[in-house]
Write a protein that binds this DNA or RNA. Structure first.
Lengths: 138, 138
DNA sequence: ACAATAAATGCACTTCCATTGCATTGGTTA
DNA sequence: TAACCAATGCAATGGAAGTGCATTTATTGT
């Protein structure tokens, strides 16, 4: 079990207080978060720093971006089973129309999609919308 | 073969010069277009009019919205086989990373997606990214 | 045909998110 | 300790989406 510091270093990300905090914040969350979510959680920090931190995490492939159709980009830590680098191996995302949260269904792989002749599929983005387990369980 | 005027009227859309032009523009295009695309095509018209025309078309279900992950909403005419009202019967969209165009693969239905227990799927958005037929055929 | 009414259009403005330039701070290394 | 580079903070910009209101255009009833 690596420490977060060691993990970040192994990904060539310089360890700073801010980055540790943001990483922990993402790790605690079970859902994908927006920049504003992070902003609200760290009111003392500057928007830009949070923005660039997330971008750094994205480049170093420890965070992936999710476009769930709400128009606002969301982010989530890549977890075991999330091979974002391997574009053909993307999992799907679920967006709850009730609580408005978006979660990664890491274990649910996207089925092979057939495209017409001449088309080359490099990457698939699949967002299922509906009611999540918490909201439907009421 | 109905005229466009008759078609619009049958959908309870009042026929105006602007709407006819925009409809024709969409019909000519084989790809999904952004608001800016329309704006560029009709520089004399006001942005708001174009915006609201598209929204009207959307409400009356002759146009559907596509979120292809570029962050910019695109629109396309609903064609034969496009039953946008029936949410479970959505076709998929293909976004070309080369020419940056998004096209509707109307005949390609989205496969049934399994979601975990407790989750209720209401709607599925699937965008495949890659290289389109025109670009790969070089 | 004309007045009354309703819808469509145009203009101005606002909001929200994403992004960038530049100055400053802070940590690393020679 | 000086020099350097990365990280942070501040300010500002840009683009797209959306809204309020005045004006024009079309429709309806008399």
């Amino acid at each position: 079990m690596k420490t977060i510091e060691e993990f970040l270093e192994s990904k060539n990300i310089r360890v700073t207080a801010m980055r540790l905090l943001i990483y922990k914040f993402l790790a605690e969350k079970q859902v994908a978060v927006t920049l504003s979510d992070i902003e609200n959680a760290f009111e003392k920090a500057d928007r830009t720093t949070l923005y660039r931190t997330i971008k750094t995490f994205e480049e170093k492939e420890i965070v992936h971006q999710i476009d769930d159709g709400t128009g606002i980009t969301k982010y989530a830590l890549c977890e075991k089973g999330c091979n974002c680098e391997i574009e053909t191996d993307l999992h799907l995302h679920f967006h709850c129309n009730n609580c408005n949260e978006t979660i990664c269904l890491t274990e649910h792989k996207i089925p092979q999609i057939k495209v017409p002749d001449g088309f080359v599929s490099e990457n698939v983005n699949l967002v299922v919308k509906g009611i999540c387990d918490k909201c439907s369980g009421q």
